[in-house]
């Protein structure tokens, strides 16, 4: 399991470095998603499977989809078609595919090695997180809901059509 941690850490560092050095926003997003998946695998190896699932679903799923929406919206225009052709080249998928392959191998190794059914000992179950969230951290949950509401109102306010 230590190998899983260190391998994922190396993948996360490489992909994060690639994110901040890309010039094409979609390439950077692709690497950012791989980086988030690597961090999710680190969480998994540290005995936090619930948070690993949240990382994949919310970070790599929902938040990155928002980024992709915005980038696709802003790329409208004459250059868009040319850029689409460039993106469809098979070459640019090699890097993320290789790094994803490393993590897929780790996951397969993890499940084949017989440790997939962890009973106890260090793994924090989702039930405990739920009890903590709605017990001592109930105020924090309320504040988070207020924050999400204000984010919703703020995004709606900024995105409304401007009056002429």
């Amino acid at each position: 399991m230590n190998l899983l941690f260190y391998l994922s850490a190396v993948v996360a560092l490489i992909t994060t470095l690639l994110v901040i050095t890309r010039t094409n926003a979609v390439h950077a997003l692709l690497y950012l998603i791989v980086s988030l998946l690597a961090v999710a695998l680190i969480f998994f190896s540290l005995g936090a499977p619930f948070v690993a699932a949240l990382e994949v679903i919310i970070y790599a799923g929902a938040i990155m989809v928002l980024f992709i929406f915005v980038i696709m919206m802003l790329n409208l225009g004459g250059r868009a078609a040319k850029q689409e052709c460039l993106w469809l080249r098979p070459g640019i998928w090699k890097g993320p595919a290789l790094l994803c392959g490393i993590m897929a191998a780790e996951l397969i190794y993890f499940f084949l090695s017989g440790h997939a059914r962890i009973s106890a000992g260090g793994v924090v179950q989702p039930k405990e997180i739920g009890i903590a969230l709605f017990g001592p951290y109930a105020l924090g949950v309320e504040l988070a809901s207020m924050l999400l509401l204000s984010g919703l109102v703020g995004a709606y306010h900024l995105g409304r059509p401007e009056k002429q």
Partner: peptide
């Protein structure tokens, strides 16, 4: 630690929605 991560996730979601707007 995991509870705090859930809060950070919520904050990141709110931040990114306003930021992208």
């Amino acid at each position: 630690g995991q509870v705090m991560f859930v809060f950070i996730l919520t904050m990141a979601a709110a931040e990114v929605s306003v930021g992208l707007a």
